[in-house]
Simulated assay, not measured.
Amino acid sequence: MPKAGVPGDGIFLVGKDIQAGTYRSEGKNKYGCYWARLRDTTGEDSAIIANGNAQGPAIVKVAAGDRAFQTSDCKPWKKIA
């Protein structure tokens, strides 16, 4: 069963590791909160659907059609919708 939150840094498969939906983070831990919605997990730039660097609070809608969600150095992401 996918989690209703994002458990930390890494790449998480939508539908396996995390649920599709809208997530909120309070922002960066230390340097800057990076996030990306991914169409695949190849690591290529073409895999990025959308991404950002948040200093403060961030909201991201992870779609059911996204393959994965990547995050690093963010405070915990909590599912809000």
Rank of each mutant, 00 (worst) to 15 (best):
56 G>D: 11
19 Q>V: 04
54 A>N: 12
48 I>Y: 08
72 S>N: 11
70 Q>L: 13
79 K>E: 02
56 G>R: 10
77 W>M: 02
65 G>S: 15
27 G>L: 06
62 V>N: 00
45 D>L: 14
71 T>R: 04
76 P>M: 06
5 G>R: 12
36 A>H: 05
71 T>P: 04
10 G>Y: 07
46 S>N: 09
26 E>S: 14
66 D>T: 07
81 A>N: 14
47 A>E: 11
38 L>T: 05
13 L>N: 13
63 A>K: 11
49 I>M: 05
73 D>M: 04
19 Q>L: 13
32 G>F: 03
71 T>Q: 07
3 K>G: 10
4 A>T: 11
79 K>D: 01
58 A>E: 09
73 D>P: 05
10 G>H: 08
56 G>F: 08
75 K>E: 13
57 P>C: 01
51 N>S: 15
74 C>H: 02
81 A>V: 10
25 S>G: 09
25 S>M: 07
18 I>H: 00
78 K>T: 14
63 A>Q: 12
51 N>T: 12
33 C>V: 10
19 Q>P: 00
61 K>L: 07
32 G>E: 07
67 R>L: 08
47 A>Q: 11
72 S>P: 00
29 N>L: 14
49 I>S: 01
2 P>R: 00
34 Y>A: 11
68 A>F: 01
10 G>R: 10
6 V>L: 08
39 R>Q: 12
26 E>T: 14
80 I>A: 02
39 R>G: 05
27 G>F: 06
27 G>E: 03
38 L>N: 01
26 E>P: 10
59 I>G: 01
34 Y>G: 09
23 Y>A: 05
31 Y>R: 08
34 Y>R: 14
42 T>W: 04
14 V>T: 07
72 S>E: 13
28 K>T: 10
10 G>V: 10
49 I>W: 02
70 Q>H: 12
65 G>W: 08
52 G>L: 04
12 F>L: 02
79 K>R: 15
14 V>F: 07
48 I>K: 13
14 V>S: 06
69 F>M: 01
16 K>C: 00
5 G>Y: 15
73 D>K: 03
55 Q>D: 15
73 D>V: 02
62 V>K: 00
45 D>W: 13
65 G>F: 07
77 W>Q: 01
78 K>A: 12
59 I>A: 08
77 W>H: 02
74 C>V: 05
33 C>F: 06
64 A>R: 10
